[in-house]
Design a protein around this nucleic acid. Structure first.
Lengths: 133, 133
DNA sequence: CTGGATCCCAATAGATACTG
DNA sequence: CAGTATCTATTGGGATCCAG
């Protein structure tokens, strides 16, 4: 098991996803509908292949994502959020709201703000649908 | 300036606080009312002193916390959340809710769950007061 | 081809000792 | 008390290699 730093729930959570990449993989699945290794690799942030592989493996071990056989192409594999992973989406939404508010010059980022603020639950629901589709 | 990985608001936020320590410092201030270097150092997770110093410096540069002269002991310094840092608290609350739900054996952690779920806004308000006191 | 594993090197994090 | 300095360990980037 992953070693735990303390009994604090915040430390507990950060021990799972407190790095620069894990929540981006969750985002890729829930917002952009990405499912395959190559799609994650092609995301704009340029994650290194070894890091991607190690994060995917860790997230599967942690029960946040699951690795399945692609029903349409039997040889390929796809990744999906588990219920435990879907429960991370409220955190993701709050990060969007924070960034949208404090990113001074990104119109892209600020575009999310109205959406996220006005229709937080709708955005969440859309992400959940996307993640389980 | 910090280098930005992409235009994505989630990547943007994680570039600020996407590590295992930054949000714990925010927590120390907002939940435990800690203000001084030594208090952060004494927190249960055992952060190394150089890491603590570097995180504090970065958070100040990022405008998430501010370093002030202690009004009671002029020679000492205290750290406090800025409004930008206070805006991180909804993220912290969602992490608490996630951890409380998915930490299988911690009564400490699960103790927060009822509070956070039942009275999310009250918890937030209390943290805000604590952070600005 | 896709989905990784491996390797090398650079960069970052961390433990510990020490200092103003 | 509030940090720096130093040294070591771990992580990360990027190229390349390998299996199905």
């Amino acid at each position: 098991m992953r070693d735990q730093r303390s009994e604090c729930p915040i430390a507990y959570g950060l021990d799972f996803f407190g790095d620069k990449w894990s929540l981006l993989i969750v985002r890729d699945i829930a917002i952009y509908g990405r499912r395959r290794y190559g799609q994650f690799e092609a995301a704009g942030e340029g994650i290194a292949t070894n890091i991607l592989a190690s994060r995917l493996k860790q997230l599967v071990e942690d029960g946040i994502i699951e690795k399945l056989r692609d029903p349409e192409h039997g040889s390929k594999r796809i990744y999906r959020l588990t219920p435990k992973g879907i429960d991370l989406l409220p955190i993701v939404v709050e990060i969007i709201i924070w960034s949208a508010k404090h990113d001074p010059d990104s119109p892209v980022t600020r575009g999310y703000l109205h959406r996220a603020r006005r229709d937080r639950d709708g955005l969440l629901e859309e992400m959940r649908r996307n993640a389980t589709a």
